[in-house]
Design a protein around this nucleic acid. Structure first.
Length: 467
RNA sequence: GGUCCCAUCGUCUAGUGGUUAGGACACCGGCCUUUCACGUCGGUAACAGGGGUUCAAGUCCCCUUGGGAUCACCA
């Protein structure tokens, strides 16, 4: 264990978004690579909008992706006494002050400033008020921002970024109701939890100078900041539901494998030469924040789909069989009532881009009363077909065992004997076995079905043709 | 509008002063083939524009344009 500490700090106001997932992934990867600690912290200071369902959804998403945390989840609502104490500390040192302006007054001032073309920032009305007794009037606590000077940092992704302090206004660190605000608690927590690096979305860039000023006010070491560019939709606008699914768990439900989503997400912004496919171990070894790009990237479902197809193609059939089972059940199929699911999956792996397609492709193995594809039947079920299928049955029965080789040999024999090509019998067999004209290989299907089921299906086709 | 950030094929990106500007997805063709796929071979396609610096600029600097983020008693 090194003393490197990173965290993912979502606010529980919804499901785990792919953007958040990528941020979490980058943090997790770096923590693993540097043998540091990955902390999960739930930013639930907005009591109104935070829900337990969201917390559960986020945890579920993290778990599904395999992003395990070493500490936490911590909840900010558990630390309210600490935040109170810290506010008092700043107040006592004169680094913060009480502001009695009402929200309405402030709103009015902002509007007026805007109309006059000025900056809508706090005018400092209460900044230099003489200390007064608590007379029961409601107040917020504001941080006393330096009037001049520059605040800068070297962002691990974006490089040097600097802000003039006079652009910053005195931010509220404690609300009228006594609860602390985000920019304050995030700093307290990151100090308290000894974070050495903060990787987060670049929508936080503008918050960073205020936060740095707070670190300085507390005399605390400032972590390294790394601001990850945003994920965009196909129209280059911020990715949202209207571009398609944005929830991590929705991708599971659409038949995506977690390793495909992880691989896709990590490549959105990060790269390692010309490499595209990375196992988790390779990512832990190769990931580096320096190779994360500075510009936003468009979420591209096509590429994710390709990656998913790759992982299905190369995946362990036993695991895939387990994963596809719930989708099969959704389709009213009980795999126990038919051929062993593992060999079935093997015949489908290179034909499915999602687990949904895998499930769809597997259904026929477990149904026996299906209708034959109309066009296919019209073309391939001919008056000669029954005799051919009967000959096939006879030869299959004579086989000591059904294997790819022995079944193939049988078809060769029939073709030679009848003077036909494989095309003269294959399509009919395919149709008889699967009901369709697009299916796994016919030899594969016969082997997977076994002699009894194969005979049954061929016999049904014969009966159908003979009417 | 202020502030901050960004800019290589349609998309994800490689590129750290000298390259026929590379790879991947998608797309289009050939091959393979019992269907569908897979695989394989090949092709179309990019340095936003303008100024500098330099023997040499996609790479460095400036401007323009375009995009994005943020300006809450939300996080």
């Amino acid at each position: 264990m090194s003393n490197v500490r990173l965290r993912f700090a979502p606010s529980p106001t919804g499901y785990l978004h792919v953007g958040g997932a990528r941020t979490a992934l980058f943090n997790w990867l770096l923590a693993r690579k540097l043998k540091g600690t990955f902390v999960l912290r739930i930013e639930d200071t907005d009591v109104q909008r935070s829900t337990q369902e969201s917390v559960d959804a986020i945890l579920q998403g993290m778990t599904w992706l395999g992003l395990n945390w070493d500490e936490g989840p911590f909840y900010q609502t558990d630390y309210f006494p600490l935040y109170k104490e810290k506010v008092q500390e700043l107040l006592a040192q004169g680094k913060a002050y009480k502001c009695y302006c009402s929200a309405e007054e402030l709103e009015a001032k902002r509007e007026k400033a805007m109309q006059e073309g000025g900056k809508p920032k706090y005018d400092g009305t209460c900044r230099d008020l003489p200390p007064q007794e608590n007379d029961g009037r409601p107040y917020v606590v504001r941080f006393r921002t330096p009037l001049e000077g520059t605040t800068l940092w070297n962002d691990a992704i974006k490089g040097k970024i600097s802000f003039e302090n006079n652009e910053l206004d005195d931010l509220i660190i404690q609300r009228t109701d006594g609860t602390p605000t985000y920019n304050f608690v995030v700093v307290i927590d990151d100090i308290n939890m000894k974070m050495t690096m903060v990787i987060r979305g670049d929508d936080h860039v503008n918050n960073t100078p205020r936060q740095i000023l707070l670190y300085e006010a507390f005399g605390a070491p400032i972590p390294t900041f790394a601001h990850v560019p945003m994920i965009l939709g196909s129209d280059k606008a911020r990715l949202s539901k209207r571009h398609g699914a944005t929830s991590v768990m929705a991708y599971r439900d659409m038949g995506y494998l977690p390793e495909a989503l992880v691989n896709y997400l990590v490549r959105l912004g990060w790269s390692h030469g010309d490499d595209e496919i990375f196992s988790i171990d390779e990512l832990i070894e190769k990931f580096s924040i320096e190779n994360v790009g500075r510009s936003p990237s468009v979420f591209n479902t096509e590429k994710l789909l390709w990656l998913n197809a790759h992982y299905i193609k190369t995946g362990d059939p036993v695991r895939l069989a387990e994963l596809v089972t719930p989708f099969l059940k959704e389709r009213g199929v009980d795999p126990a009532g038919g051929p062993d699911l593992v060999p079935v999956v093997k015949t489908l792996q290179e034909r499915a881009k999602t687990m949904l397609e895998l499930a769809d492709g597997a259904v026929f193995y477990y149904q026996d009363g299906f209708a034959y594809d109309e066009k296919g039947a019209a073309k391939n079920f001919t008056p000669e077909t029954p005799a051919l299928l009967e000959a096939l049955i006879a030869k299959l029965e004579a086989l000591p065992a059904l294997t790819m080789d022995s079944v193939e040999a049988v078809f060769k024999e029939i073709c030679e004997e009848k003077g036909i090509k494989l095309g003269g019998i294959g399509p009919a067999v395919r149709l008889a076995l699967s009901g369709t004209t697009a299916s796994p290989g016919i030899f594969d299907m016969i082997v997977v079905f076994g002699l009894a089921e194969t005979k049954k299906r061929l016999a049904r086709a014969i009966a159908t043709i003979r009417g």
